[in-house]
């Protein structure tokens, strides 16, 4: 059976660093960056990109809609 691999792209300037995506990520993919954006918020990024399955949970709970999700089925 193929394994799902995913990736997210965060619109870092719009992210408000609320961390709701982190608790909704079932695979511990997302973390908060040490750096801050133009508004002074720490923004979400893929801390463990290899874990992401592209389930889109983070994106649908994001209040500011800053996360875009991609998913691909691998053969392995």
């Amino acid at each position: 059976m193929g394994k799902m691999r995913g990736a997210i792209v965060v619109d870092t300037e719009r992210c408000k660093g609320c961390e709701v995506c982190i608790v909704n990520c079932p695979t511990d993919t997302i973390g908060m960056a040490e750096e801050v954006n133009g508004k002074g918020y720490h923004y979400a990024y893929m801390k463990h990109p290899e874990n992401c399955t592209g389930c889109a949970n983070c994106a649908i709970v994001c209040p500011d809609g800053v996360i875009t999700v991609y998913r691909v089925k691998t053969e392995k």
């Binding site: 691999r5 995913g6 990736a7 792209v9 619109d11 893929m46 990109p49 592209g54 889109a56 994106a59 649908i60 809609g65 800053v66 996360i67 875009t68 999700v69 991609y70 998913r71 691909v72 691998t74």
Partner: peptide, 18 residues
């Protein structure tokens, strides 16, 4: 698989509604 290979328009599953 590289992240750049995943982030392609054909693999898009969720984006902010226009």
């Amino acid at each position: 698989m590289d992240i750049k290979e995943i982030i392609q328009p054909e693999n898009l599953v969720h984006k902010r509604t226009p």
